[in-house]
Amino acid sequence: MAMLHIVNKSPFERVAFESCLRYVKAGDSILMIEDASVGAIEGTKFADQLKAAMADTSVYVLGGDLAARGMSEDRMIEGIKSVDYAGFVELVADNEKTQSWV
């Protein structure tokens, strides 16, 4: 019963992303949208936490949100996949349920 965790808060400003990481189960997926997209960047103080979660979960970022914040995809942590809104819809369909960490 895989779950899609949708995160929209920057990990540098709010605890929502950290809380989400503590609840992610093996086989779940995480999608970073809006301000959470900056969490995809390699070398930040948050990167190690996210990489640890990536051992058994798939992590995605809404590419448009990352680009809007001036961050190019070549700065992303290796293994994170960039998706568009069609990809977002596909993730929702592919997971039995979604939880938004607002």
Binding site: M1, M3, R22, Y23, K97, T98, Q99, V102
Partner: peptide
């Protein structure tokens, strides 16, 4: 926290506030 993760995983609809 671990038990809560199981509880959350066992739901159909999640409303977040």
């Amino acid at each position: 926290r671990a038990e809560m993760a199981d509880v959350l995983a066992d739901q159909d609809v999640h409303y977040s506030f």
